[in-house]
Design a protein around this nucleic acid. Structure first.
Length: 651
DNA sequence: TCCGTCACGGTTGAA
DNA sequence: GCTTCAACCGTGACG
């Protein structure tokens, strides 16, 4: 199948022989390692990894020294990867030497938090990582650690002898030629199909020999591992102790298995590989991956990449970069001639290249293996700026990830998309309205506390003060409009007391505000007669008044004014969080001088929505120019009076 | 030079 | 099936 397409420069007999021998050794070593580590991981997984490692070994043994560059480190092919069996017995083997971090401690045990931070610890990300061409790599990486093997050198994915024709999906970041460590032997035509780098000849032949690695018997995870291992695009240079390996791998595998099941349910798009990438190697490789990946059932991406839910869909077959063969040809010709410029790498299928030359997909999270590497390097004491350069990740991203780790202990990205569960359930709305009807003078924060106290809500699903105000306001508006829409003489059945209570509340507000204004006037006059105070009134107010100063604004919002609109797209996290979670963060209109002067007054300044203009908030302040409640409630003063008379009559 | 912050343009998924 | 919206993302500029 694949061998028919992939021309081998290698001696197949030698490969097969070596493969068998290595496989035997590796399996023995794996068994030993497995016993030592008391793994819960199935032997099938480990075995298949060993198979792939064996193929990689073969590949490496016949390949010139190559340098793999993926940002973090340049993995030298001269790493001794041929002694797999002996290394496997040691379980812990030295990872590939990072050229950049050669002086850094190479075998530092992984940070205890790291295990928590792995995706098994609750990755909520639903999409697939952009650069994580096959996030199953991580499975491979972990599994390879399990197997006690040296992390596979990515040369196995090098296309030197692999791909006979360029692939439509290019992974420019993996073929940049600007690295000083680049090796000229790398094929410029190396392509990545479906996120999988080109299969090496050795791998292909090994697969041909060993078959599709027991596809039918493979668990999904096993399948992932196999495919990813064949891809061999491993950048992981971490070192784990065996227990950590096992725990992490087990949880990771569980996670991936779960994701796989979810993905299979949701995998609606089933385009064939041939449709997207055309004929040729890709199709054959698709077949190979189908055989290896999913028993040729689900096809391309769903078979081997989307199962974990964190792979990159940008690298799927559905995302061909070059729709025009000429364009692709031009790209590849440039690549071969070394004339490829950064501009050629930009905007490939919506992908971008950052200032370091690494390809990224805008809007998509950094792949997990890079996140882990960021964390590990940071734990090794490497400065963020250096991590940024090494991994070719922007320092802002590094900073963000590390900050998140400091705060949450996790390096996983947050949940992308979706909606927060609605807190203003009908029950809560009814409760709020009932509270307000029972006690019209209740402030929103009081309602909020009462909701908590009554056990209607908890701290997590308690609506914000603004939400409560909105409920009240909406109810008031609804009631008003209902009243306007009906004849004043008509008995509308609205005898539930709410409209009555509202009208009473409005009248009371009017009276109180009139009193408030009068007191303010008196206070002003008194202050004018006194010496001006140097102390800000806010510093000399009782706690109750302080709280009131906030709540007065909220109360103002709930009746008299349009609520401050939430910015359509909150950029500021501080504002993104519910600003009304506590009184201190409550955003209120600009304090008006009158309020300041009256902060110490026990009198609650209530404003009338109809007769009294808002002290600090006018129609001018309404962002959209929307009329304030005054206008909404009373299109004309006359009708307003009529309504009030009607309400009074009901009372 | 380093680093924290944030606007920007993008993706995602629930409603 | 489409749109809207609010969450998230990484990048890159800025201070």
């Amino acid at each position: 199948m694949t061998a028919q397409v992939l021309q081998s420069p290698l001696d197949r007999d030698v490969l097969e022989t070596n493969c068998e021998e290595s496989l035997t050794e590796i399996q023995a070593a794996v068994s030993k390692a497995k016993n030592q580590a008391d793994s819960k991981v199935s032997m099938d997984t480990v075995t298949m990894v060993a198979k792939d490692d064996s193929t990689q070994q073969l590949k490496l043994a016949t390949s010139p020294p190559l340098v793999y560059e993926n940002g973090l480190a340049s993995f030298h092919a001269e790493n001794n990867l041929t002694g797999l069996s002996s290394e496997a017995e040691e379980v812990m083997v030295s990872g590939p030497q990072s050229e950049v971090t050669a002086d850094e401690p190479q075998h530092s045990p992984i940070h205890p938090h790291l295990g928590v931070s792995l995706p098994s610890a609750g990755v909520t990300q639903r999409g697939r990582c952009p650069d994580d061409n096959n996030s199953s790599q991580r499975v491979t990486a972990v599994s390879q650690h399990i197997a006690g093997f040296q992390l596979t050198s990515p040369q196995v994915s090098q296309p030197d002898h692999t791909v006979s024709s360029p692939q439509p999906c290019i992974s420019p970041s993996k073929q940049r030629d600007d690295s000083p460590n680049q090796n000229s032997s790398r094929s410029p035509g190396f392509a990545c199909v479906n996120g999988l780098p080109g299969l090496s000849q050795a791998t292909s032949e090994a697969v041909d020999k060993n078959g599709p690695v027991n596809v039918t018997a493979c668990s999904p995870v096993d399948t992932i591992t196999t495919t990813a291992s064949m891809a061999g695009d491993i950048t992981d240079n971490m070192h784990f102790d065996s227990n950590s390996q096992m725990n992490m791998a087990h949880s990771y595998l569980q996670y991936l298995s779960q994701k796989r099941q979810e993905s299979e349910k949701n995998d609606k798009s089933e385009k064939s590989c041939a449709e997207s990438v055309g004929q040729g190697v890709a199709g054959d490789r698709k077949d190979l991956m189908l055989d290896l990946g999913d028993g040729a059932e689900s096809g391309h991406k769903g078979s081997d990449l989307s199962m974990d839910g964190v792979s990159d869909d940008s690298n799927s077959y559905e995302d061909p970069i070059f729709s025009d063969p000429d364009e692709m040809e031009d790209y590849m010709r440039k690549k071969q001639e070394g004339r490829l410029e950064p501009s050629d790498l930009c905007n490939l299928g919506g992908r971008n290249v950052n200032q370091y030359g690494r390809e990224f997909t805008n809007g998509r999270p950094l792949p997990d293996h890079l996140r882990v590497q960021i964390l590990q390097l940071a734990l090794q004491g490497i400065r963020p700026c250096e991590i940024s350069r090494q991994l070719q990740v922007s320092h802002g991203c590094v900073s963000k990830i590390l900050n998140r780790y400091r705060k949450t202990g996790s390096i996983n990205p947050g949940q992308i998309g979706g909606s927060k569960p609605k807190v203003t359930t009908p029950d809560v709305v009814n409760r709020v309205r009932r509270y307000k009807a029972e006690n019209p003078q209740m402030f929103a924060w009081e309602i909020r506390q009462k909701l908590l106290g009554d056990g209607i809500c908890n701290e997590k699903n308690i609506p914000s003060i603004s939400s409560i105000n909105r409920i009240i306001r909406d109810k008031a508006l609804q009631q008003r409009r209902l009243d306007f829409g009906q004849s004043s003489e008509q008995e509308d059945g609205d005898s539930d007391g709410e409209s009555t209570a509202m009208s009473r509340m409005i009248d009371q507000y009017q009276r109180e505000y009139a009193q408030y204004r009068a007191e303010q006037q008196a206070a002003k006059q008194a202050q004018a007669a006194q010496k001006p105070q140097t102390v800000h009134p806010a510093f000399n107010i009782p706690a109750r008044a302080s709280l009131f100063s906030v709540q007065s604004a909220a109360a103002a919002l709930q009746l008299g004014t349009e609520q401050e609109p939430v910015p359509k797209k909150t950029k500021n996290k501080s504002s993104a969080a519910s600003p009304h979670e506590d009184g201190q963060s409550l955003k209120v209109p600009e304090p008006r001088t009158e309020s300041h002067q009256n902060l110490s007054s026990p009198q609650r300044p209530r404003k009338s929505p109809e007769t009294v203009p808002s002290p600090g908030r006018t129609e001018k302040d309404s962002p959209s120019g929307a009329p304030l409640l005054k206008a909404e409630l009373s299109p004309s003063r006359k009708s307003s009076e009529m309504v009030r008379a009607s309400l009074a009559a009901k009372v």
